[in-house]
Measured scan of single mutants.
Amino acid sequence: KLLSSIEQACDICRLKKLKCSKEKPKCAKCLKNNWECRYSPKTKRSPLTRAHLTEVESRLERLE
């Protein structure tokens, strides 16, 4: 599967780190437990900047 097509777990399953069936409108866990089942939009991760990478590398060197 391509990364862009990976389905996201519902908010509660993601928060509780449960295996989500990803069914809509309610996944199996939410249906069974009568929880409100919501699927928040995916958040875009910002790409690493060179400055951040350099900072992490220098912190790693100090720890070694």
Rank of each mutant, 00 (worst) to 15 (best):
K1T: 15
K1S: 15
K1G: 15
K1R: 11
L2T: 10
L2E: 15
L2M: 15
L2F: 08
L2G: 15
L2S: 14
L3I: 12
L3E: 15
L3S: 10
S4H: 12
S4A: 13
S4D: 13
S4G: 08
S4N: 10
S4V: 12
S4R: 05
S4L: 13
S4M: 14
S5M: 11
S5T: 10
S5L: 11
S5K: 09
S5N: 10
S5C: 12
S5V: 11
I6M: 13
I6E: 09
I6P: 12
I6F: 13
E7P: 10
E7G: 10
E7T: 10
E7K: 08
E7A: 09
Q8E: 02
Q8Y: 13
Q8R: 06
Q8N: 09
Q8L: 11
A9W: 03
A9E: 00
C10N: 07
C10W: 02
C10A: 06
C10G: 00
C10Y: 04
C10E: 13
D11A: 02
D11V: 10
D11P: 02
I12K: 10
I12P: 11
I12N: 09
I12E: 11
I12T: 11
I12M: 10
C13S: 03
C13A: 02
C13E: 06
C13N: 04
C13M: 06
R14W: 01
R14L: 05
R14A: 07
R14I: 03
L15G: 12
L15E: 11
L15F: 11
L15D: 10
L15P: 04
L15H: 11
L15A: 12
L15C: 14
L15W: 11
K16H: 00
K16W: 04
K16S: 00
K16N: 08
K16E: 00
K16I: 00
K16Q: 00
K17C: 07
K17D: 02
K17P: 01
K17W: 06
K17N: 06
L18D: 01
L18S: 11
L18I: 12
L18H: 11
L18N: 10
L18G: 15
K19I: 04
C20S: 05
C20L: 06
C20R: 03
C20V: 01
C20M: 08
C20G: 06
S21N: 05
K22E: 05
K22S: 04
K22H: 09
K22L: 05
E23R: 09
E23P: 07
E23K: 10
E23Y: 03
E23Q: 15
E23D: 13
E23T: 14
K24R: 14
K24A: 15
K24C: 12
P25A: 04
P25D: 04
P25E: 04
P25G: 11
P25R: 00
P25T: 08
P25H: 00
K26M: 13
K26W: 12
C27G: 04
C27E: 00
C27W: 01
A28D: 09
A28L: 12
A28C: 10
A28Y: 10
K29Q: 06
K29A: 05
C30L: 00
C30N: 07
C30S: 03
C30M: 07
C30K: 03
C30W: 08
L31P: 05
L31N: 14
L31C: 13
L31M: 14
L31V: 12
L31S: 12
L31E: 13
K32N: 11
K32Y: 09
K32P: 03
N33E: 09
N33R: 12
N33H: 11
N33W: 01
N33C: 11
N33Y: 10
N34W: 03
N34A: 12
N34M: 14
N34F: 14
W35F: 13
W35T: 11
W35C: 06
W35H: 13
E36M: 10
E36V: 14
E36S: 14
E36I: 08
E36P: 14
E36N: 13
E36T: 13
E36A: 12
C37E: 02
C37L: 02
C37A: 08
C37I: 03
R38T: 15
R38C: 15
R38A: 14
R38M: 15
R38D: 08
R38Y: 14
R38K: 12
Y39Q: 07
Y39L: 06
Y39G: 03
S40Y: 08
P41S: 05
P41M: 08
P41W: 06
P41R: 02
K42G: 09
K42F: 12
K42D: 06
K42C: 07
T43S: 10
T43M: 13
T43R: 08
T43A: 13
K44R: 12
K44M: 12
K44G: 03
K44Q: 15
K44E: 04
R45I: 00
R45N: 01
R45G: 02
R45A: 04
R45Y: 01
S46M: 07
S46G: 01
S46K: 00
S46H: 00
S46T: 12
S46A: 04
S46V: 01
S46R: 00
P47I: 02
P47L: 02
P47H: 03
P47T: 02
P47K: 07
P47A: 06
P47N: 01
L48D: 00
L48S: 04
L48H: 03
L48P: 05
L48N: 02
L48G: 07
L48K: 08
L48F: 06
T49C: 07
T49Y: 08
T49P: 00
T49D: 03
R50F: 02
R50M: 07
R50K: 01
R50T: 05
R50G: 00
A51K: 12
A51C: 09
A51W: 02
H52S: 06
H52L: 03
H52V: 01
H52I: 04
H52A: 01
L53T: 00
L53E: 09
L53Q: 03
L53V: 13
L53W: 07
L53R: 10
L53D: 02
T54Y: 09
T54H: 05
E55M: 14
E55G: 09
E55H: 10
E55D: 14
E55T: 12
V56D: 08
V56E: 01
V56Y: 08
V56I: 06
V56P: 02
V56T: 07
E57L: 02
E57P: 07
E57K: 03
S58F: 14
S58P: 03
S58M: 14
S58R: 11
R59P: 03
R59S: 05
R59H: 05
R59C: 03
L60A: 13
L60N: 04
L60F: 06
E61L: 15
E61V: 15
E61K: 10
E61C: 13
E61F: 13
R62E: 04
R62D: 00
L63F: 12
L63H: 03
L63K: 02
L63M: 13
L63S: 03
E64R: 09
E64C: 09
